[in-house]
Design a binder for these strands. Structure first.
Lengths: 129, 129, 129, 129
DNA sequence: GTGGTCTAGACCACG
DNA sequence: GTGGTCTAGACCACC
């Protein structure tokens, strides 16, 4: 289900966060769908439970998932228009990366193509409901 | 000249790398212009010389600056069309952030605006020669 | 295990890099085998941890080793056919040294013998699995 | 005459040493031919005289050139079969580089081709006497 | 003067 | 436990 690269320089818990976000964004994980438990995922991925815990906690903080005491973790329904500070931070990151991309020679066309790629993946996910 | 946040979670040397890149990308630092010496910057920022050196070394590795032995560090002239692996990595990062942005409700217009903002800053830098 | 010459003109971290490469090339260190930790090696060699870390970091950059977060450093399995720029640089170095060797009177036979020596050490290492 | 890369990480004096050796090995500089004076070369290359001095001193130490008091520096005639310690050191360097080359996937054919390339350049130089 | 190497030792992030 | 970051400060190589 999740594929992690333990050799990567990126911390495992961050990789896990990104994977879950990606699946939520692509509609692979639907709203209110239950996520695997910490214990299950830990043994499936042969990763320390604390690492899974840390990823879930961060996903909850960012509003991607919510947890019910004793029941488990679930995907949050999309709530657009909130998280203004989160959006501001993301905007800065995007600016930084775009500036670097333009400097390295990316054209407006290439960047536009990246955007369209994102849109397509999103629609494909939504149609498979 | 450079403003650092020593309390940030982002390492000082990375903050410095980003600042220098930004100034190069915006044309604030021009090609072949000399950067402050490791020692000078170290005392200006009250940061250890090794930390500055680490940042400069990474900037050199990424092709943003070069150093002349016994003379100091200088801004590299722009050489587009190289660093293919660097560009591939950047493309992935951009995809990831855009997907997150779209999910959080950014519209195509907003993202286009970010791109135009990058372009404007670049032109403003180049015109101030 | 490793012998260093602290009085040599060659930096300690470079000596260490060369030693590790040699042991990997000769099969003394096998793929996915764990290297001594930075701290352990540091105290064994009575060399500062930062110096060991610098060597390990460069070895990782060159693809000879990889590190698992919180677990340690390990020998990379051999992946031929990559690192084209690395190979190009090496080719130039070899050309330079061979030209010097020929000038100093090395015969084709002697140089061929060196090559066979390399091959033999490699096979001896692989057979001792 | 000499082309130096001041941006290279390799010290200028070493680059100069290599260039002179190369020209001697290829027969471009003939035995007993006079080299440019330190002062001349210094202004031609816009390099510090001390740097040229250092290169010439090292070339003399290695037996590539000799200097006559007040007259200048001259190319040494080839004296094969001497410098045993020099040859031993060179043999070690060659072994080290070849081992790395083989590890990175160089074939015996490729290495043989490098040797033939050296031989050809040598003959071309000798025929142009 | 410049950057490069190294030490001694603290603190943090990750698992 | 592991490696990663940072400081304070010494010494060296290069120009």
């Amino acid at each position: 289900m999740f594929e992690l690269d333990v050799r990567s320089r990126k911390p495992i818990y961050e990789q896990l966060i990104d994977k879950v976000k990606e699946m939520v964004q692509h509609g692979i994980l639907q709203a209110d769908e239950q996520l695997p438990s910490v214990r299950t995922l830990s043994s499936q991925l042969t990763v320390n439970p604390n690492t899974i815990q840390k990823a879930y906690r961060e996903l909850e903080r960012e509003g991607y998932i919510y947890s019910l005491q004793g029941k488990g973790s679930f995907v949050s329904p999309l709530q657009q228009g909130q998280n203004e500070s989160q959006k501001a931070e993301l905007r800065n990151e995007l600016l930084r990366l775009m500036a670097e991309a333009v400097y390295l020679g990316f054209t407006a066309l290439e960047i536009g193509a990246l955007y369209r790629q994102v849109e397509e993946q999103r629609e494909r996910g939504n149609n498979s409901d």
